[in-house]
Every structure is written in structure tokens, then in C-alpha cells.
Computed example of a mutant assay.
Amino acid sequence: MGTKDLTFVQLNQLIGRKTGGISVYPFTSSIRGKEDPCSHIIVRGKSMAGRADDLFNLINCVLQEVQFTDQQRFKQFVSQSKARMENRLRGGGHGIAAARMDAKLNVAGWISEQMGGVSYLEFLQALEEKVDNDWAGISSSLEEIRKSLLSKEGCLVNMTADGKTLSNTGKVVGKFLDLLPSKSLVERASWNVRLPSNNEAIVIPTQVNYVGKAANLYNRGYQLSGSAYVISKHISNTWLWDRVRVSGGAYGGFCNFDTHSGVFTFLSYRDPNLLKTLDIYDGTGDFLRELKMDDDTLTKAIIGTIGDVDAYQLPDAKGYSSLVRYLLGITEEERQRRREEILSTR
């Protein structure tokens, strides 16, 4: 979609010439210890120090000046998004399964599934047909959504740069904030909704399966410790690797523990089995109860876990990670405590 003065192509070319790219996407996550999720629209961009003014002007252009009038361009966006989701369903079904299970267990998962899971695909399929029949209604809805999302109230700016650049761009950031509406036109709402908590099978045109199983450990009284990172890493690298991938013939078998929501998830990738894989997941408890690890194996598991927790990041990734930690209320003291718990795992 273009603006009053720029076509869609011209706007994208301008962004490419003056910045390192601009992206807009939703961010939703559970917050440990809280029922309400953290939900934001995140706008990310990067540029050379001397182009900071251009970067913020273009971000404002993308957010406030784009016109929802090009019906064919919008339909193209919808069709492309639908095709990507259909390809993801066939080639990345483990991610779809994880999102679906998460939506049954917490509100943040439900929101994310609505914007990136099977529910989103169903929405896109309906929207593609609606574009031809009710474009005026869709255009009006898009404008209403923009007015409800954008406001200076609650806006948070996170910049990563050297001290001189940060000092020089203060006025630029202030100008950007002044251009935003003072407050949203809609009241903030709280949601308490999940998908029905029942077993589910989604039929897709492939000869392999993506098998998942999940549960919320916090609801069962578990208190978070850094050792959980080590344990989940070891389960993926030994039990699931040997049973699901090597013996079972799947391309991958792994588990993940979301420490924000407490959801522990088992997943397999391009798996020829179904019930057999679920039996392996169910056998994980016995595997852990009977587990005997020598010091060398435990040390390798700890080193691998620390490598994931403190992975190398470029400056932009460091800045983004600090923003996410701020939004989720994760302090440096807590991070250090988790490191110590990981290193002291026995």
C-alpha cells in the first residue's frame, strides 16, 4: 500500500535506500506469575547514524500515512500470506502444532494462534473472498484498527547506538512521538479465552506427521529453576534424539520449556509415526527417574545450555533482547540467578 505522494514500490525503494529495513509485527507473550499477557505492536528498523532522522520519518510514514485504498495490492498481500501459511502447514507443522497447544493452555498462546496458526489461515481464506465483495468495509476496518493501535500513551522507544548518536537523536525521537495521536480511540480490554482443551488432529496432504504434546508445569506446582534448561536440553539431545529420530525415523524430535508461561512441549518433525511417538513422550518421566549421568555428560549438558542462554548477539539483537526483557519484567539479577542455577545443576 502506498501513501498520498508515494506508490507502494516507491515507498519500498525509499526504505531500501535510506535504511537497513523496517518491519512491523505483533509481539505476544505470557508473563511469569501474571494471568494477563504482554501484547504489543513492535516496529523495528535500523540505519546508519546519520540516517536516524530518515529512519523515524519513514517509520511514521509507514504507520500513519499509508492509505488503505489499493484493493488489488491488498488482495495480493492476503493471497501471499495465505500461500505462506499453507506452505508452513505442510513444511513446518511442528510450529503449527506448538501454537495450537499453546492456545489451549494460556491467553498469550490463544492470541498468537489467532495471528499465526490454523485460525489465522482460516481467517485469511475468508478475507480473500471478502476483499472482492466488501472492499469498502475492509478499508474502513483497517483504518479503525490503525487508530486503535497507535498512540503516544504507552509508546516505548528502544534505541541501540553509541552515546554520541543517542544524544544527537533525542530531538528526532521527540518529533516522532509528537506526531503520534495523544491516546488510542478505544479502551484497553482484557481477554480470558483459550481453545477447548481437547486432543486434536489436523489432516494435511503429507505422508509424514508433526506430533506434539504439551502441559503447563506451573499449574502443577513447579517452581522455576535454571536446572530446567539443562534437563530439557538433555531430554532433546538424548531421549528424544535416540527414540524419535534415530529409532523412530523422524527428521527431528525435541522439547521446549517456555519459562514465561510454564508450558512444556514435546514435538517431532516429519515423523512417520504417531501413537508410537506419543508413547515415547509419555515415557520421559521414567527416563528421568532412571537417569544416571556421569560428570562428563552433565558438564556437556551445562555447557550447551549456557551457550544457548548467553548466545553471541550483534548490537541490534542485543538491543531487541533488552527490550523484550524489559517488557516481560526480567531483571539482570534474575538472569544471573538462572545462570548460577544452571551451573550448579546436579
Rank of each mutant, 00 (worst) to 15 (best):
G109K: 05
V107E: 00
K213R: 14
K318G: 12
N198V: 04
I204L: 01
E332S: 13
P26K: 10
V118C: 10
W241D: 15
E35N: 10
K75Y: 08
T277A: 06
I280D: 02
K82Q: 09
I235P: 07
S268R: 00
C61V: 03
Q71Y: 03
N106T: 02
D286N: 11
G170C: 11
T206N: 01
Q223N: 06
R17G: 01
A108E: 06
Q10V: 01
L275R: 03
R270L: 03
F287H: 08
D70V: 04
T160I: 11
T69L: 06
G174C: 04
I145T: 10
R346N: 12
F254I: 04
L121E: 13
G50R: 08
R32F: 04
L185D: 15
E333S: 11
V208W: 08
G116S: 10
V208N: 08
S30T: 14
V173M: 09
L127R: 01
R146L: 01
A250L: 02
E143Y: 03
I145Q: 13
S47M: 11
V309L: 14
L150E: 12
G174F: 01
T69E: 15
L327I: 02
G45E: 09
L166E: 15
G154P: 12
D279P: 08
L291F: 02
N273F: 02
S81A: 09
D316N: 13
N133M: 13
G249F: 04
E122F: 02
K276W: 07
E144Y: 08
L343T: 15
G92R: 00
N158F: 01
L89T: 00
